[in-house]
Amino acid sequence: MKRELTCIVCPRGCALTVEYEVVDGKVNVTQVSGNGCKRGITYAEAECVAPVRTITTTVRTTADHVVAVKTAAPIPKEKMMEVMEVLARVRVEEPVRIGDTIVEDILGTGVNVVATANI
C-alpha cells in the first residue's frame, strides 16, 4: 500500500511517498521516497506505525505566571490532549530554569516534560 505524507521533521517539509504492507495487523514500511535526508525515513516509518508529536505549551506557576514547557521527546500523537489535561492541573514553584523537569514520565510515556524558558 502507498501513503503520501508531508515530513514535519524540519522546515523543508519534504513530500514523502511511503510504501508499506500490513502483516498480521502490523504495519511494515518497505520503501520511503521523496525524503531530503535520513530523518525523513525515520519519520515516515514512525508516522505509519505509531505517529508521535512533541508538545510545546505552558504550565502555570504557584505565583500565577505561565512558563513555557515541552515534552523532551515526541509522545504518541493520540495522547496529546490527555497530556494537555495533566499539564492544566500542574503548578510549579518559581524560579524555573530551562531544562528543569516539570513532570516526570508523563502518562507513562517514558518522556519528561521540561521547561523551555526561565522565570
Binding site: 505552558t58 504550565v59 502555570r60 505561565v66 494537555m84 489535561e85 495533566v86 499539564l87 492544566a88 492541573r89 500542574v90
Partner: peptide
Amino acid sequence: KTKTGEEA
C-alpha cells in the same frame, strides 16, 4: 485564563 484545570 489558560491552565485553570477546567480543561480536564
